[in-house]
Design a binder for these strands. Structure first.
Lengths: 164, 164
DNA sequence: CCAATGTACGCAATAAACTTGCGCAATTGG
DNA sequence: CCAATTGCGCAAGTTTATTGCGTACATTGG
């Protein structure tokens, strides 16, 4: 009742690549009926294993967009201040991703804006107006070589599929 | 025939958040019939505006996963070598995202692995075995504060929706 | 100015996919 | 050994997606 089994992972593997795959097709691929697949998917949604279903858009066609990787360094590591900063990043639409990391920088951000002017405004909002932030370094993206949020499946699943 | 209009962008805005939204619901939201929405979606898929449809999985529940941000610095900027390196990154499943950027580093990678041992093996494959790579810096992710690939809509669209 | 063309729409019908009820088999626990 | 639980497949029911068709509107060319 608690955990997920290999069949679940194989369903996830498919949905992660294409969540419009019909339950019938998934069923055929893994040896289950469509309703069985459906019930597993519902369950995985309820348990939060599948957290969202989204369409991936093409940045090239959506208009001129600038992607910037920002490394943010904080003055102190006060928990309260860090949490407040996290919240701010989370709430900012232009911040596509935010990682709290070890090393020199404290945060790594992936920011998407329409213009450099918008980015400048954003830096004021996020960094200059924030007392806890010491420094930030921007790396402009010239090429999105690869983009995705695909996660690797547990080793056991990978093996099971390869041995088929 | 060529471009996209405001209605298209509003459809994209919805699908980007939840691509399981029914065409009827989208239609009601923007004042179109379901078939009209359907035809626009088909067209946007054909033109590559919608490049994929995927389920987002929960890293916490999928098992122990380690996310690492890697900054890669190359020795030379020879086009040939850069392209070869891009290809290698693109083909590596553990590389979730790869950005070719300006600044100190040449590449920014988001890497996801099951164990540090796997990461060590990966660094050998990707970096030590690659003559063009001078140095790389790893930042271990302690918290995925925000994750997504949502793109901002053209300003005109945003305004149009807010004024409704 | 008026036809001809193309494009996008809505409605209605069809097709496909999802969802649910039900009975059965396998496993688990008393 | 029996009752309870779990997950399955099948078949029916429901919703959603897709397609055919006629119409409206804008653009173009005579």
């Amino acid at each position: 009742m608690e955990a997920f089994d290999t069949l679940d992972y194989r369903i996830l593997e498919v949905l992660q690549k294409n969540n419009l795959t019909s339950q019938r097709d998934i069923g055929n691929a893994i040896g289950l009926s469509a309703p069985a697949v459906q019930r597993r998917i519902v369950r995985m949604r309820e348990l939060g294993m599948i957290s969202a279903d989204m369409a991936l858009l093409n940045p090239e066609l959506l208009g001129p967009l600038i992607t910037i990787i920002v490394q943010v360094e904080m003055e102190t590591d006060k928990v309260e201040l860090v949490n407040k900063t996290k919240l701010k990043f989370r709430q900012t639409p232009q911040v596509q991703q935010c990682y709290y990391v070890t090393g020199e920088a404290d945060f790594m951000l992936v920011v998407v804006v329409h213009t450099m002017k918008e980015y400048e405004t954003l830096t004021h909002q996020l960094f200059f107006n924030n007392p806890g932030i010491q420094r930030f370094k921007s790396s402009i993206c010239m090429d999105i070589v690869k983009s995705g949020l695909t996660l690797p499946m547990p080793d056991a699943v990978v093996k099971a599929v390869n041995n088929k």
